[in-house]
């Protein structure tokens, strides 16, 4: 009986060892750190019917810190100005926000910074470049890394969201329809200059990939 149990256990371990090592993920650390840029729009809207836009002069901020609410420093102004520049480049005229009917489009920006938490088992990193295969430690071919517990690690991620509301038809619609959104997301680390650079690139790319977004004179 003991022999049978040992044989059974050994077989199970061998099978497990073989298949635990069979999944080989792509080398994801070769991926670009540039933000993923996504745009969405209301396909029923004709953007050529709008002429003017107004833009909010601060960026709404959501982070793990509940006291964070507004981003208004020079970096924020640089990003806001980039949005305004892109809007003017496609033919819209900037006006000041104010009375109803003052601007056809209202634009505001939102910045989100948080930590993304991943739960992994020890040895999860096997297959990543630079992480030692079991045989690096000696004659351990076919032996997987293994443990029954797991641990967490976190990565700082951020998003910049640009929202465009239809002010021109707000009274008729009795609501402010959001008709275009640009979103940039990715890992941000701790470098302020990297964050600013990615936000500017997000704005530029969002307009570039939205060819329908222009005034009729374009």
């Amino acid at each position: 009986m003991k022999k049978l149990n040992r044989g059974y256990l050994s077989s199970l371990l061998l099978v497990f060892a073989a298949f635990a090592s069979c999944k080989k993920l792509p080398p994801v650390d070769n991926l670009s750190s540039d933000f993923v840029v996504e745009t969405k729009y209301d396909t029923s809207v004709h953007f050529t019917t709008f002429k003017t836009f107004a833009i909010r002069d601060t960026i709404t901020v959501a982070t793990e810190n509940p006291k964070d609410s507004v981003w208004y420093d020079a970096d924020a102004q640089t990003i806001i100005n980039e949005v305004a520049k892109q809007m003017k480049a496609v033919g819209y005229t900037q006006v000041m926000p104010g009375d109803k009917g003052g601007a056809d489009l209202g634009i505001q920006l939102i910045g989100i910074r948080n930590r993304t938490i991943f739960n992994v088992t020890p040895g999860y990193w096997w297959g990543f470049p630079g992480y030692g295969d079991p045989y690096y430690w000696g004659d351990f071919y076919g032996y997987p890394y293994w443990n029954s517990y797991w641990y967490s690690y976190s990565i700082k991620t951020g998003s910049l969201i640009v929202e465009m509301a239809n002010l021109k038809d707000a009274v008729a619609n009795q609501k402010l329809n959001i008709i275009w959104t640009g979103i940039g997301s990715g890992q941000i680390g701790n470098s302020k200059s990297f964050v600013l650079d990615q936000c500017i690139k997000t704005v530029d790319q969002a307009f570039l990939q939205s060819p329908y977004l222009h005034q009729s004179t374009q």
């Binding site: 080398p27 991926l31 670009s32 540039d34 993923v36 745009t39 396909t43 990939q209």
Partner: peptide
């Protein structure tokens, strides 16, 4: 890195696609 257009927008990124078959 390239732009993929959908019916309601677009997304720009580089990526790995991966298939595991057992």
């Amino acid at each position: 890195r390239q732009t993929y257009h959908t019916k309601t927008g677009a997304i720009t990124t580089d990526m790995y696609t991966y298939i595991f078959a057992l």
